[in-house]
Design a protein around this nucleic acid. Sequence first.
DNA 1: CTTTGTGAACGGATTCACAGCT
DNA 2: AGCTGTGAATCCGTTCACAAAG
Lengths: 234, 234
Amino acid sequence: MAEGSKRQARKIPEATVARLPIYLRSLLEAAGDGLPTISSERLAELSGFNAAKVRKDLSYLGSYGTRGVGYDVEYLQYQMSRELGLTKDWHVVIAGLGNLGHALANYGGFGDRGFPVAALVDADPRVVGTDINGITVRHIDELDAIAAESQIDIGIIATPASAAQEVADRMIAAGVSSILNFAPTIVSVPAEVSLRKVDLAVELQILSFYQQRRGGAGSTSSLPPETAAAPPAG
Amino acid sequence: MAEGSKRQARKIPEATVARLPIYLRSLLEAAGDGLPTISSERLAELSGFNAAKVRKDLSYLGSYGTRGVGYDVEYLQYQMSRELGLTKDWHVVIAGLGNLGHALANYGGFGDRGFPVAALVDADPRVVGTDINGITVRHIDELDAIAAESQIDIGIIATPASAAQEVADRMIAAGVSSILNFAPTIVSVPAEVSLRKVDLAVELQILSFYQQRRGGAGSTSSLPPETAAAPPAG
DNA sequence: CTTTGTGAACGGATTCACAGCT
DNA sequence: AGCTGTGAATCCGTTCACAAAG
C-alpha cells in the first residue's frame, strides 16, 4: 500500500460483487459448523462456485486468508458485510401493492436483514389508506413528502408495466438512487442511479429456450437426442 | 461431428439467449407503431441495449433482416418465438404457497403467455386442499402422480430455503427438467436440468454495495456490538 | 505438508468499423 | 443513400498453475 488515503479505492468487478451476497450467506451456514476457519474449497462447495473463483473474488476484498489454513469465518463475514454496506440499514419503499407488492410487503424477513420497509405507495385510491403488515399505504403523489420525512434509499417497483417508468422517475426525483424493478418492462434511469431487474416472464422464456433445445416433452419436439445444451446456471 | 442434420447447429451464446425475451417484448411494443419493419437502432432503443449488440444477437438467429430497410416486425417476432420455444405451452408447477407462491399462483397473465399453471403443491397440511385461483393445492408427495397425470415442464420453487433442495430433487425425480428457484439458497441440479434463480435478498445487497460506494446516506446502525473487527486469530 | 494469492493464459461477450446488399 | 451482417479488435471474466507463506 503506497502512500495516500487508507480508504481503498479497490475496483471489484461487477461479476464479483454479484457473488458476494452468496458468499456471505454461505459463511452464515458455515458458522453453524463451529469451525473457526473455512477453506476456499469448502466455501466453493457451499456457494456453488469453484475454489479458484472464490479465491480470486476474495482477493479483491483484500488478503484476508491465511495460507495453509483458510479464511477466518467471522472476520471474513464482517469484512464482507462492511464491503456490501450491510453495517447500516437501507430504507425501502415499495410501489404498487397488487399481488406481488402485497407479498413483498407481507414478507417479514426483510427488515430483519437490514432493509426495513419505510413506506408503501400506490396510485389506486382503493388501496391507499389500507394497512399492510402494520404500514398504511399512501398515495404515490406523496413520495416527495415521504422521502422528506425519512430517508429512502431503495425503491422497489411492483406496479404494472405501464406505470413503471413514471414511478421510477418519481422515485428518482424524490432522491432514491437504487431501484429494483419487478415490472415486465424496460426502465431507463440516469447513470448515477443503480437499477436491477427481476423479470419472471423473461426467466420462464429463457428456461423455455433450453427446454426446447433439450427436446423437452410436448408434441412439437424433434431435435436430435444428442442435443446436450449447457444449462444457463453457473 | 462432421456434417449431418440440416437442422441448425447454431450456437447462440447464453448472453444472447437471455436477451431474446426482451427483444420479443420490444417487438410487441413496436407492432403498436403500425410500421411493418424496425431498424436495429429502434429496436435497441426499445430494448435498452445498443444497435451493434442487437444486430449481432439477431444474426445468431439467421439473416432475417433486409439491408437498407430493417427487420420485418411480424416475421422476426415469429422466428424469435419459435427459437424460444414459445409456440407451445409449457406446464408449470408451483411448490410452496406462502406469500410469494400465493402471489405467483394468483397472478393471471401466466397461462396467457404460454406457461399455464398445471398444479400447486405444498407440504403444509393446512394449505393442502385449499383453492387458489381455481386450483386445488395438493401435497408435495403427490408430485410423481401429478407429473404422470399431465406433463410438467417447469418447476417453480417458492418454499423456504430449508426445503428448496429437497423439493428440487423431487421435481427432478418426477421428470421436471427446468427449475426456477425463488428460495434464498443454493440448489444443485444435474447437468441436464436447467436452473435459474431469482433472489430478492441478493439483489438488495448488490444495490446496497453500489449505494454505499456512491456515499448514500442510510441510517447508521445496527450490527452486533462485536463490530470492532478482530483481525484473524493468531 | 496445506492452502492462499495472483500473474498468465484462455474464452466469451461487447464494441468497432466497414464490406456488402437493397 | 440507408441499414444489415460480420470479421477484427477489445474488454471482461474465468480458469490454470505455481510461487509464496504458514
